[in-house]
């Protein structure tokens, strides 16, 4: 039964991935449709980021470092920083927040 579930989800997921590449052109080709789809993609990524941060900040001690790190990373990302720079900014802010918390209490 486990194989059946994996194959069913796999086939379904593949169809979700492949169908718009072949049958969507007529419906998705207009500039308006392309704009809406691009906005939906941005929304999907933002939702994944927010829920990932929420999971990471689930404990009291992780809360401040997580959100400070996210703020620092977002600042660099919006300015067009590379992924490595965004990660470095987030890591530095995270480490600084932990260090500050350790010093305070």
């Amino acid at each position: 039964m486990i194989w059946a579930v994996m194959i069913a989800v796999g086939v379904g997921s593949y169809l979700l991935r492949v169908l718009p590449l072949f049958v969507g052109g007529k419906y998705l080709g207009s500039p308006r449709a392309e704009r809406i789809i691009a906005q939906a993609g941005t929304a999907a990524l933002a939702a994944l980021i927010a829920s990932g941060l929420h999971r990471s900040a689930s404990t009291t001690t992780d809360f401040a470092p997580t959100w400070l790190s996210a703020a620092a990373a977002l600042t660099v990302a919006v300015r067009g920083g590379s992924m490595q720079r965004v990660l470095a900014a987030g890591a530095l802010a995270y480490a600084a927040a932990w260090a500050a918390m350790a010093l305070i209490g």
Binding site: T42, A43, L45, A46, S69, A77, G81, R85, G90
Partner: peptide, 30 residues
Amino acid sequence: ELVAPICLMSLIGTRVRDRSNRWAAVAAAA
């Protein structure tokens, strides 16, 4: 767990300079 959302952030960063994409991101995140 924090690393994955931050990596995704680098992919969305320049998109949110556009006003409508920015609103899409803020509303979706909230």
